[in-house]
Simulated scan of single mutants.
Amino acid sequence: MDISVGHTPDSDDAFMFYAMFTDKVKSDDFSVTHVIEDIENLNKKAKNPELDVTAVSVHACAYIPNYVMLRSGGSFGINYGPIVTATKPMTIEEIKKSKIAIPGEMTSAYLLLQLMIGKFDYVEMNFSDIPEAVRSGKVDVGLVIHETQLSFGEEGIQKILDVGEWWHEKSGGLPVPLGVNVMSEKLGEELIYKFDKYLQESIKFARDNIPDALDYAMKYSRGKSRELIEKFVLMYVNEVTVDMGEAGEKAVRLMFEMAKEKGLVLDFELKISKPL
């Protein structure tokens, strides 16, 4: 079966899909065409289903009823996640009064920061533009994701809040739910399960062949060093990525329960693929 698969131009996604897209692991059931888009673009595409499988922010699952969340391929932080940056230290009250640059309204980073500090004024921009916008003074505060969580110091900005640490404490040690892969429910439970296993095999292969998978992922390094990209990739392609398991599912459900209580998302049915 021919299927379309969307992922981001990010090194961790590339690492996960390396074996699938280079035929290191094969499937008798699927022939894959991949589509590369920024995460917020993929979130928006999923609202009017264009792809059979796509990476999305966990937050986006509140708005995409035609998709089922896969158990493999999720981005979960283990006591780390998005961070809030500025050029100088700021209090929580000062941060709340600032216009904050965010990487998209449907990103999990945006939802998590609202859960942490309440609603705030914001401006959307591509995540890769946020560090320079903060450094140059275009905005006072920036919410950063991806490898900038590690490289912010090199970009002339500093960490003033750690969303990942806050979630770890608030949730009692659950992983930070950030990104997942979803598949169109119209394809049916059996095909969804088979693709979930196929993606899981690709992830396991990459984790067993790190140097080769990292060579592939470096195409999406955005000028960062191999050392930094390897650290970032291994942070976000972890055991919960292989299978979200009970802890990952509990974290996702908790985030949405908290968001519903605060009126940040409407009530909806969360659909998750059957256990692997």
Results as ranks from 00 to 15, higher is better:
residue 181 N to Q: 10
residue 201 E to I: 01
residue 181 N to I: 02
residue 166 W to A: 11
residue 146 H to L: 01
residue 216 Y to V: 01
residue 115 L to T: 03
residue 194 K to C: 02
residue 125 M to G: 04
residue 156 G to A: 09
residue 187 L to S: 04
residue 237 V to M: 02
residue 137 G to F: 10
residue 170 K to D: 02
residue 195 F to G: 01
residue 205 F to K: 08
residue 232 F to E: 07
residue 125 M to S: 13
residue 195 F to H: 02
residue 212 D to V: 05
residue 189 E to I: 13
residue 195 F to R: 03
residue 142 G to C: 09
residue 141 V to E: 08
residue 139 V to A: 04
residue 118 G to L: 10
residue 127 F to T: 00
residue 142 G to F: 03
residue 200 Q to I: 00
residue 169 E to Q: 11
residue 236 Y to F: 15
residue 220 Y to C: 02
residue 207 R to Q: 13
residue 153 G to Y: 12
residue 110 Y to A: 08
residue 110 Y to Q: 00
residue 125 M to A: 14
residue 124 E to T: 14
residue 122 Y to T: 08
residue 130 I to V: 12
residue 189 E to V: 14
residue 213 A to K: 06
residue 140 D to N: 14
residue 152 F to I: 13
residue 159 K to V: 13
residue 157 I to R: 13
residue 138 K to M: 10
residue 130 I to A: 11
residue 122 Y to H: 15
residue 231 K to C: 01
residue 112 L to E: 12
residue 132 E to N: 14
residue 174 L to C: 07
residue 189 E to W: 09
residue 215 D to N: 14
residue 192 I to C: 07
residue 138 K to G: 02
residue 163 V to K: 07
residue 146 H to C: 03
residue 142 G to Q: 07
residue 116 M to T: 00
residue 187 L to A: 05
residue 237 V to F: 01
residue 129 D to E: 15
residue 210 I to T: 11
residue 123 V to H: 08
residue 155 E to G: 04
residue 191 L to S: 13
residue 151 S to T: 15
residue 166 W to S: 09
residue 153 G to N: 13
residue 121 D to M: 12
residue 132 E to M: 14
residue 182 V to Y: 10
residue 235 M to P: 00
residue 180 V to Q: 02
residue 166 W to R: 03
residue 200 Q to E: 13
residue 216 Y to F: 15
residue 164 G to K: 00
residue 172 G to L: 06
residue 170 K to T: 11
residue 209 N to P: 11
residue 168 H to C: 02
residue 168 H to P: 02
residue 189 E to L: 10
residue 170 K to L: 05
